[in-house]
Design a protein around this nucleic acid. Structure first.
Lengths: 200, 200
DNA sequence: TGGTTTCTGAACATACTGTTCAGTTTGGTC
DNA sequence: GACCAAACTGAACAGTATGTTCAGAAACCA
């Protein structure tokens, strides 16, 4: 259990910092999945037992690094997605290394839940009181998947030369209509759920 | 190198089949990432050297299994996405085990590129001749991310009780407007977005 | 049937993991 | 500056997985 804390020992800070940057470096060099704890402690020049004194395993360390990123996204402005794209652009190399390589999937999973939170707040604020045409959670999933798909897989991944502003416009152009449609209040009078629609 | 075909030796068929179903079983029991080659060959009751005679590693075997799924999606109808949702529903347990657990990310990566292909075909057919407002590839990414996000993470993952038909409608309701907007021809002098009233 | 291919099973070298512990270094504090 | 507690070290260890090799047995197919 984490002690109530009053700032960790300087040695602890040093060690964790060393490990975190070793991880970052190595991710860029070899990709997350080809990485061993051995590599990390070698690079950080830290004793094996020291590593395990602080982190359960490789992923635990990854999560520790992620906490920082979470902060960067926190200030939930109205233009939250733009901030995300800007953050991507600011440290494009790292991100590309994180998500582009084999093994980046794990990282994307964490990123996804992180961004979903952010987006959920935004959408919840926009949603009408009662039920919506499409369940709020589905709209959240829709917006998040797209944000990550476009932002990492396409933009970063393929190195498309667009500015964060342009990306944000593109993102909104694609998602906004769907979000608007999805967040409409579910029809009052006789909306039958299991509508075997005759459409088409 | 793959021989020019002519149907493999019966023993080969048997072995591969054993390994494939062992993999499937074990994925459902322990999840893909907790799985070792050792587990697989134990379950399949196949010699260690035999495994490596056919597959490079765990993932190679996974890909082999995936080829089957690829076939299931191939018949590119106009309602391709409905087929995908139906396929999800048909073997929901397996899919949930595949993508829901830790380690499923790798699987999703492969699924993504598989579905992107499918969707690319569809959209390319709908796209106008020249450039589009949003690059075609971005629209493909948009549609694919959403399909997978909604289909696996939300629908299967959370066990939302909707039929494939309902899912397809939900999917289209969210994506169709964005796709339409994205696929408009670019930079025609003053294309007014008033096209909304046409068919459906 | 007989020649070919595949499977077996065990052995092997290599690598990583996570734990332990006695001994050293460092930090914070009085 | 001295002292205690905490963190770090480094090496060792058991456990487990990997991927390769090979000679002999088994199965296949024509």
């Amino acid at each position: 259990m984490p002690m109530p804390e009053g700032r960790p020992d300087r040695r602890v800070r040093r060690t964790k910092a060393l490990l975190r940057s070793a991880l970052l470096e190595l991710i860029q060099e070899k990709g997350y999945d080809r990485l061993t704890v051995q590599d990390i402690i070698d690079r950080a020049d830290v004793g094996r037992s020291t590593f395990y004194a602080h982190f359960r395993d490789k992923e635990d360390l990854l999560l520790y690094g992620l906490a920082e990123i979470r902060e960067a996204f926190r200030p939930g402005q109205d233009t939250a997605t733009l901030q995300v794209f800007e953050h991507f652009a600011r440290s494009a190399e790292v991100w590309r290394a994180m998500v582009g390589r084999r093994g980046g999937e794990l990282f994307l999973r964490h990123l996804h839940s992180l961004l979903a939170e952010l987006i959920r707040e935004q959408l919840a604020a926009r949603a009408p009181a009662g039920e919506t045409v499409v369940p709020l959670e589905a709209v959240v999933e829709f917006a998040t998947s797209t944000l990550i798909g476009l932002g990492t897989r396409w933009w970063l991944g393929k190195g498309v030369p667009l500015t964060p502003q342009e990306m944000d416009r593109l993102y909104r152009r694609l998602t906004e209509p769907g979000i608007r449609a999805g967040l409409r209040p579910a029809a009052e009078p006789n909306r039958r759920p299991a509508t075997a629609s005759s459409g088409r």
